[in-house]
Design a protein around this nucleic acid. Structure first.
Lengths: 410, 410
DNA sequence: AGTGGTTTTTTCGAGCAATAAAAATAATGC
DNA sequence: GCATTATTTTTATTGCTCGAAAAAACCACT
């Protein structure tokens, strides 16, 4: 059990965290600016900053000229994260691709390696060995980072176990089963965190759009799968860390279309690319889903629907209906002010909006609160990476850096 | 904006809160016991307790004998809440009844008044005046409480507005519209809080069953309505305070049975008493719901189903199916370890369990995590009152008492 | 009644962090 | 050079928790 007691140590940790968070979201700033943002007194900022400087967590920037308009008074010295203070290794694992990134403490991308993943990848090697290999690659290519490497963070699709140590189910072949997080942590000697891709989307959009930073947003990914991340007033929910928000596999129609997960009637089975394709080509909905849909095929389907093609339109109508009823059911439990569609399927929002809003209109919550704002955001890669990055760096801030005792240096 | 800065003041507030919370859940205790539970040092307990004693928040109890087995050493002096330190007025408003209770700071019921509510009640008087009248009654009957009255807490059914200041929709006739919370707060000079009944059920069961105190539980009320409260690891969620978890009005079947709320296909329209009745008697599902179902009528329906009556069994099957799919959809977003059915309908759990579990079995989450424990708890009045009581007293602890400066007395 | 043992509670001094106010610093403008 | 302006640091004070030691309160036994 962790101590809940509040003492001078926890005070320092909290206030250090406040300063780090301000630097994280506001970039390099003067001490005065930090005092304003955090609410701490100038004296405290100075004291804490002195600690951070001697600990080589932050560094003073020689401000080139005076970017702000003011020309009088003592010029401010900006303070920002020292880039080499820490590094994190980020792995974005997808059905057919791995993107490994090395990022420094200030959030700058240092190195990136992309490799393809096949259905047999995890038959030939264990997830632990797979990640370890790529970690070694990153380390080899940037030796100076090895020392200060703090975290390995992995983004996957699927259902995580309750502790976030492994994957219970995933569309990535042969990934489920082993709780590779523990192994990887042991072998690398680093803290390893596992994240649901859908949740990271929510985290990422929160960081990419300042307006959404403290808003309540439901981010729905539509592509080869359907997933959702929720951020409520700036807090990402759905079981704290590691847990399930399986929006794509929420039941839409009992005994309905066959889903990739093996169940029937999931939202995904209607709204993911393979679902729309199946409906549009009048393939029976109990037919086993196509393993992968080429991007062009989906795109041409969208274009046909936009051109008025009946079959294609029908496919997107059913998809919109599934998304719409799913959202209406989600809204019975949550109450986000924005709904953001991302991923390839977001491109088809105009084709689905009618059915989505019709479905929402049948719900009590929407008839009272009104239909929430629904908008599309086409690029999904950036939010996932950004979400993984910011979540990981914030975790380093809070867990590793803010808790440093004042006599320790890194 | 509230200051997030941590200073010695906030330390004291937090630790006072820790002690108050320990007393709240553990009853009168010795200082040593409190040190163990809270993790604070004996010295701090003494210091804080001295403050609390001079502020007349707590008092030392003359321990009658030694209840614990130990017979050696200096006997412990128990410390407990001083009953007259504060009072709270609790109003449980139902479709046909108001229960007004006056409770002292130690949680003891001082006075209770029950009055009936009719569909015309809020045509004849405003909610503000209605509550004010009953508040005056309570005050008149216990004059000594007037001074120390701290809160008015109201439990209602329906959808609250985002700030928790009023009701946007309610099955209680003519209650919706005016944000009476603000008015009532102004006229009474007290802090007024409004709570969704379903959420209080979750809070109440949490306090009534120590095993559930820090567990993740979904509490489903089944009766004249269907509602749900969620507590995740001891935290009640669903939009912090005030917000919507309208489980009963989550859509079950598009364009389905007519619900009391005017929408079609809500879970409630199948699983609330009127829904089961309608199905069992083969009344068309678009028929307007009966305004109220007598308890005996529902009970006899249960008995007929238990005896094997086809029509009644069918009614409960459909109800179970609606509940089951609703839960399966909820589980796509949350992941509670227990599901607790309360209210009159919990009595019929054996009749519905088959359909509920069949519906859950079709969901991906359940096929991976297993079907959560579903159990019934028949009495629903006690959890609601207990939830309202504990939530309100805890709020007084945190907001009013823990924040008292050390030189202030009450 | 007196004494030793045991447990609970209080007292005391050290250490730490935050704040307000004053002082120091580093530029500009005339 | 000197006043002005804005930023940063220093100083004195306050309030908190904690560990250790002291005090208090009771029992048991002689």
């Amino acid at each position: 059990m962790t101590r809940n007691v509040s003492d001078s140590d926890s005070v320092r940790r909290l206030n250090r965290g406040l300063i780090l968070a301000a630097l994280r979201s506001g970039g390099p700033q003067s001490r005065t600016a930090l005092a304003g943002v955090t609410g701490l007194s100038h004296a405290s900022i100075t004291a804490i900053m002195q600690d951070l400087l001697t600990q080589r967590v932050v560094e003073e920037l020689t401000s080139s000229g005076r970017p702000d308009g003011r020309m009088r008074g003592r010029p401010a010295t900006l303070v920002g994260f020292r880039r080499a203070a820490a590094y994190v290794a980020l792995f974005e694992l997808d059905v057919n691709r791995l993107r490994a990134s090395l990022v420094d403490y200030s959030g700058v991308l240092v190195d990136r390696i992309e490799t393809s993943v096949t259905p047999t990848t995890f038959q030939e090697t264990t997830p632990t060995a797979f990640f370890n290999d790529h970690l070694d690659n990153l380390r080899r290519r940037t030796p100076k980072a090895t020392q200060a490497l703090r975290r390995i963070a992995i983004s996957v699709q699927g259902i995580l176990d309750r502790e976030g140590c492994g994957v219970k189910w995933s569309p990535i072949a042969h990934l489920a089963g082993a709780s590779f997080v523990t192994d990887l942590a042991q072998q690398s000697g680093l803290q390893v965190t596992l994240h649901k891709r859908g949740r990271l989307l929510a985290e990422g959009t929160r960081w990419l759009d300042p307006n959404l930073h403290d808003a309540s947003v439901a981010t729905v990914f539509i592509g080869s799968t359907v997933a959702m991340g929720l951020s409520l007033r700036g807090q990402i929910t759905g079981r704290g860390e590691g847990g399930a928000t399986e929006f794509g596999h929420m039941n839409h129609a009992p005994n309905g279309a066959l889903c990739r997960c093996g169940m029937r009637g999931c939202i995904e089975a209607y709204a993911a690319d393979y679902g729309v394709l199946r409906t549009s080509y009048s393939v029976p909905e109990t037919t086993h889903p196509a393993p992968a849909v080429p991007a062009q095929q989906y795109e041409s389907l969208v274009q046909r629907a936009e051109a008025g093609d009946r079959a294609a339109t029908h496919g997107f109508n059913l998809a919109g209906r599934a998304i719409g009823f799913g959202l209406s059911r989600m809204l019975a439990m949550f109450d986000p002010s924005h709904i953001l569609l991302v991923g390839p399927g977001a491109r088809a929002l105009p084709l689905m909006r009618g059915e989505i809003e019709a479905a929402l209109a049948t719900s009590l919550v929407c008839s009272i609160n009104g239909i929430p704002l629904i908008s599309a955001h086409l690029d999904e890669k950036e939010p996932i990476f950004r979400g993984l990055l910011m979540k990981t760096l914030s975790s380093v801030d809070e867990t590793d850096i803010a808790a440093l005792a004042s006599n320790v240096s890194i």
